[in-house]
């Protein structure tokens, strides 16, 4: 039972959680539930990227990837929230 198996297990579990957030995005009654699902999805994917970086022993590459991804998902969530603030909840 090497340590990589623990990292692999956590990565697979987080992928399962991504499905939960996708379910919330699909079902969410209001549009803000969907924005919440997407932003939580972004954060979880950032962590999955880092864990995959540890699994592949090429952490330098994946750290930069996850930082860029965290920035993008943050800005995207803010833009969506600001947009739906005006147009309201159809």
């Amino acid at each position: 039972m090497r340590i990589e198996d623990a990292f692999l297990g956590v990565t697979v579990a987080l992928l399962g959680l991504v499905l939960v957030y996708l379910f919330r995005v699909a079902v969410g009654p209001t549009v803000f539930d969907r924005i919440l699902g997407v932003s939580a999805l972004g954060t979880t994917t950032t962590i999955i990227l880092l864990l995959v970086g540890v699994l592949y022993d090429r952490i330098e590459l994946f750290v930069d990837l996850s930082l860029a991804y965290a920035l993008l998902s943050f800005v995207g969530a803010l833009a969506a929230a600001r947009y739906f603030e005006q147009t309201g909840d159809r």
């Binding site: 965290a70 969530a77 929230a81």
Partner: peptide, 21 residues
Amino acid sequence: LVGVFVFMATPTSAHAIGRAA
């Protein structure tokens, strides 16, 4: 650094979404 950024980003975006709602 990634941790510090996400630690600041998640509450901010949650606040923005909550205020918009």
